[in-house]
């Protein structure tokens, strides 16, 4: 009896062991190395100092670039979610077979190498492309103009890359919205918008938050997209970090910048993840206050 209880008590830790080992090897150790590098500007066996952090705050340059990077990633994530919302909703209401076919079509770009996607977008956004020809016809673009080598080109690419994933995450959240709820709301006179706002949105909100975080984090660290499409004025912090690690041969400064990016990302993710609990708490508070009056 006792032995069985001991075994049962041990099962959970034993089962968690591989995950813990992977976490230690792949997350904790590299992160510790990163922090150590950032304090060792003269190489890993040199004395520790704050030089890299001093250089980072010496000019407002790098803080600005970090903010610009986070804002760019934030905009790209919000645009992605906005674009993904209605296809995800439509998919969640479709019958099985049609839905699976469409899901398959959506997943194709996600299975393609992102470098290939970048170069195909490069052609699509170029001055000779059909899209630019259409914009020229409509008088929206000057002849020979394109958005290549600009910040918007990077945003377009980030959205394109992350759209399939976002649709999937939203779709799986929306699938759980029961049609009978919508029918009930409809019978009480709620229109399409009200049902979307007061039933679908709150029920899909957790999926929306996960989707936003899932795409925002890699977008914040993106550098290949901006290196190829962004032009000199569209570079992101990721580009500077990549340069420090390779050509500039200054892993310490690169690590310090990575930590800046990591902290910025954590703060923003914390804010986004905190919105719902905060709103719920506020709502509960209001209901509690309203209760005696009712």
């Amino acid at each position: 009896m006792v032995r069985r209880r001991v075994l049962a008590a041990l099962t959970t830790p034993v089962l968690l062991l591989p995950a813990a080992a992977v976490l230690a090897l792949m997350v904790v150790i590299p992160l510790a190395v990163l922090i150590w590098f950032s304090f060792a500007p003269d190489g890993s066996d040199g004395p520790l100092s704050l030089d890299s952090y001093e250089r980072m705050v010496e000019t407002p340059l790098y803080i600005h670039l970090a903010l610009k990077t986070l804002v760019t990633a934030g905009i790209a994530a919000l645009v992605t979610a906005a674009l993904a919302w209605s296809p995800a909703w439509v998919l969640s209401r479709l019958p099985g077979r049609t839905r699976n076919l469409i899901l398959l079509a959506i997943i194709i770009p996600y299975l393609t190498s992102y470098l290939l996607l970048i170069y195909s977008i490069f052609v699509v956004l170029g001055p000779g492309s059909p899209i630019m020809a259409l914009l020229r016809l409509l008088g929206l673009a000057a002849p020979g103009a394109s958005i290549l080598y600009t910040q918007p080109a990077t945003v377009v690419m980030l959205v394109y890359e992350n759209l399939p994933l976002t649709i999937f995450v939203l779709f799986s959240g929306m699938q759980r919205v029961d049609n009978s709820l919508l029918a009930a709301a409809g019978s009480l006179g709620a229109g399409k918008w009200r049902r979307m706002r007061y039933i679908v949105f709150p029920l899909a909100a957790p999926a929306l938050v996960s989707a936003l975080i899932m795409v925002f984090v890699p977008m914040g660290g993106a550098f290949v997209e901006s290196a190829i499409l962004g032009g000199p004025h569209g570079l992101l912090l990721g580009n500077v970090i990549a340069d420090q690690m390779t050509r500039a041969d200054d892993p310490s400064f690169g690590s310090a910048l990575s930590i800046l990016l990591l902290l910025g990302t954590l703060v923003l993710v914390g804010l986004v993840a905190g919105i719902r609990p905060a709103l719920q708490w506020l709502g509960a508070d209001r209901r509690a206050r309203n209760a005696p009056a009712a």
């Binding site: 490069f122 170029g126 001055p127 000779g128 394109s146 290549l148 080598y149 032009g231 000199p232």
Partner: peptide
């Protein structure tokens, strides 16, 4: 100079693409 620059190139391919498309 950066105000005029459209592209910081690092390979011949970067240059060719931007030059031959008139960017």
């Amino acid at each position: 100079l950066k105000a005029n620059v459209k592209l910081f190139w690092s390979s011949g391919d970067d240059w060719d693409k931007a030059y031959t498309t008139g960017e």
